[in-house]
Amino acid sequence: MSDLHHQTAYWDAVAETKHFTHPLHTPWLDGLGRDAVILDYGCGYGRTMDALEQQGFGDLFGVDTSPGMISRARRLHPAMRFEVLDTPPTLPCPDASIDLVVLFAVLTCVPDDQAQRRLIGEVRRVLKPGGRLYLSDLLLQSDRRNRDRYTEYSERHGGPYGVFRTDDGAVCRHHPDDWFTDLLSDFTSIDTRPITVATMNGHEAAGVQILAGTPTSAPPRTVERPGPTS
């Protein structure tokens, strides 16, 4: 599935037409100083960053694998910082430099288990001790349409149950509840909430939002990487 980890050509082709709907649950931002350093991984066209700015946060940085999405984001939000990820999931951030990472509807676009683990590992690297991860993603759906899509893709291509191809050509993934528990085993669970959202193609879907934290102390790190550029 290595060619499906990012699907940049697909996202560039739809960059001007897709709309994302995962909600920002503002009570989860309580206690986070408005000077907090926030990274939106898979920022798309900057919708969630705009919502964060409206909540008073100013140190915001968005990254995405799609140059088309970043171009749209820069046009819509010219004062914000956005950057294309050339070698995802590697982030242009030093170790332990970010207070909050936002990961909205990103894992659904990464169908492979190990690719998701690498992404979460990179997120863990850049978060400060006591930092937080705010994840929003989609669960396995119980309706016949989705169950048929999961089965068809699994029988043709293998891979985790829940992977499917959309009508317009993206390969996406819905997840069982316990997958997130396993994936975030290096984090401390803070809160979880169910959500219902419209998918990018207009279908109602069940999802979950998870707020997780890193330990308040961490062993010394040795890898230094350049900071974000505007």
Rank of each mutant, 00 (worst) to 15 (best):
residue 155 E to A: 01
residue 97 S to A: 15
residue 211 L to E: 03
residue 137 D to L: 13
residue 21 T to W: 11
residue 27 P to C: 03
residue 107 L to D: 04
residue 161 Y to M: 08
residue 40 D to P: 15
residue 51 A to Q: 15
residue 80 M to R: 13
residue 122 E to R: 04
residue 77 H to V: 01
residue 162 G to A: 07
residue 56 G to D: 10
residue 146 N to Y: 15
residue 198 A to Q: 12
residue 191 D to Y: 05
residue 210 I to N: 02
residue 88 P to K: 05
residue 33 G to Y: 02
residue 134 Y to W: 14
residue 91 L to N: 10
residue 140 L to R: 00
residue 228 P to W: 00
residue 206 A to Q: 14
residue 46 G to R: 11
residue 194 P to E: 11
residue 44 G to K: 08
residue 12 D to H: 07
residue 188 T to P: 08
residue 90 T to D: 06
residue 102 V to R: 05
residue 165 R to C: 15
residue 39 L to Y: 06
residue 193 R to S: 14
residue 50 D to M: 09
residue 34 R to Q: 10
residue 175 H to W: 12
residue 7 Q to A: 14
residue 117 R to S: 13
residue 9 A to I: 10
residue 185 S to K: 08
residue 94 P to S: 14
residue 119 L to G: 12
residue 201 N to E: 13
residue 48 T to K: 06
residue 200 M to L: 12
residue 58 G to Q: 15
residue 204 E to A: 12
residue 147 R to E: 13
residue 177 D to Y: 15
residue 151 T to Y: 11
residue 144 R to H: 09
residue 32 L to C: 03
residue 133 L to A: 05
residue 134 Y to C: 12
residue 144 R to V: 10
residue 107 L to S: 02
residue 190 I to G: 04
residue 161 Y to L: 12
residue 46 G to M: 13
residue 146 N to T: 01
residue 96 A to K: 00
residue 153 Y to T: 01
residue 134 Y to R: 09
residue 198 A to Y: 00
residue 203 H to S: 11
residue 108 T to W: 01
residue 230 S to T: 03
residue 39 L to P: 08
residue 146 N to A: 13
residue 127 L to F: 09
residue 13 A to C: 02
residue 179 W to P: 01
residue 141 Q to L: 08
residue 180 F to C: 08
residue 181 T to C: 06
residue 40 D to V: 06
